[in-house]
Simulated assay, not measured.
Amino acid sequence: MSVALASSSTPNSMRQEPLRVMVVDDSVVIRGLIARWLEPEPDMVVAASLRTGLDAVNQIERVNPDVAVLDIEMPDLDGISALPLLLAKKRNLIIIMASTLTRRNAEISFKALSLGASDYIPKPESTREAGAAETFRHDLIQKIRHLGAKVRRAAPASSSPPLAPALDRPREARPAPPPVGQPQLVRRAFSTQAPRVLLIGSSTGGPQALMTLVTELGLVIDRFPVLITQHMPPTFTTILAEHLARVSRRPAHEALDGEVVRAGQIYLAPGGRHMRVVRHGAEAAIALDDGPPINFCKPAVDPMFISAIDVWQGGALAVVLTGMGSDGMRGGKEIVAAGGSVIAQDEASSVVWGMPGAAANAGICAAVLPLCQIAPKLIRLFSGDRS
């Protein structure tokens, strides 16, 4: 049976109230676990705990959630079928898809992102594994908090459309001015050295942003290697690499330990392993390691950024895309200190302006751009522009 755990609040009330979370999962164990995790959090409350997607669709107007944690496999109506019905009833609802780490569920999660889901989270195979359960708890709370905060900053009647290719979004041709009272971000000059490698780091919202970006980067990929670290678990990175290859029409794959880095290729850090670059004679090679998480992430962006300095020095050009936390900021600082350059995605086009915001606020960026402007800028930089 469906159980409502908190009464609905007035939609136009002051936005100091806790985020209202609707948990939809046919497992009573998972529902109970999430409820216990969220109970101590002062900025969120479980508004409803429901067994099926059909329950969620029928009760969304009464529950009025800000965020829904939506399981994929459920009786009566599964998550991927419930997703568009929920968004039809509440366009600005934040939906986080939850699934186990199977290839089928990874594919469904990617489809959900294209249908309007905000993010996904892998469920542990067993909640009795302390490490896996703790990672799930930490990631879930952070995603709810950061994604929920974004929708609450938006106008009540508006919703954030999914990221789209640059040509479909001409209104973002110019960056929006900073809000009143916010200081202008410090910009550095671009490196005078020619870039020789493109490094990209991303997290929440990253899969959509990456696919938008690489669609326009063919001229760069053909002549230079592209290395990407996206915060993502195993299996999901396999699917992401396949999607990147499809939209870019260029070779893209999970990086292999020891393989030589060459132009014309997209190398994606595999889920669960950090990706670094090392010298291999006169060439660069991939080095994967199974070390502990860095910045709560594995793979993490900082190891890739920092290791690239030993190989390309001031020829490293880094891009920090949408994502929670500050991963990439420390590595970006070291890239700039070595003579390279950093570009960050701007706040308006980011799903979460954590990682790019940290880089921008650290004063290490030569440009902070809407997603639709990043590919054209990269093409100019790799073609010889230095400004």
Rank of each mutant, 00 (worst) to 15 (best):
M1G: 15
A4G: 15
M14H: 15
R15P: 08
R20H: 08
G32M: 10
P40D: 03
A47Q: 10
G53F: 07
I60W: 00
E61I: 15
M74I: 06
L87G: 08
A88I: 07
K89L: 14
A98H: 08
T100S: 12
E107R: 09
I108F: 03
I108N: 04
L113H: 13
A117D: 07
Y120M: 05
A132E: 11
A133Q: 06
L140Y: 06
I144T: 08
R145I: 02
A149C: 15
A149P: 15
K150C: 11
K150M: 15
R153V: 13
S158Y: 09
S159K: 14
R171G: 14
R174F: 11
P177N: 09
V180M: 13
A189I: 12
S202N: 07
G205L: 11
L210P: 06
M211N: 07
I221K: 12
D222P: 03
Q230R: 03
M232Y: 03
T235V: 05
T238P: 15
H243W: 13
R246K: 13
R250Y: 01
H253G: 11
D257H: 11
A263W: 01
A263S: 02
R276N: 00
R279S: 09
H280R: 12
G281F: 01
I286H: 04
D289V: 00
P293T: 11
F296T: 10
C297G: 12
P299R: 02
A300S: 07
D302P: 04
P303H: 02
S307E: 00
S307L: 02
G314N: 04
A316V: 05
D327Q: 05
G332L: 10
A337K: 02
V342M: 03
S350P: 09
G357Q: 03
N361R: 11
A367Q: 03
V368Y: 00
L369P: 00
C372P: 05
P376Q: 12
R386E: 02
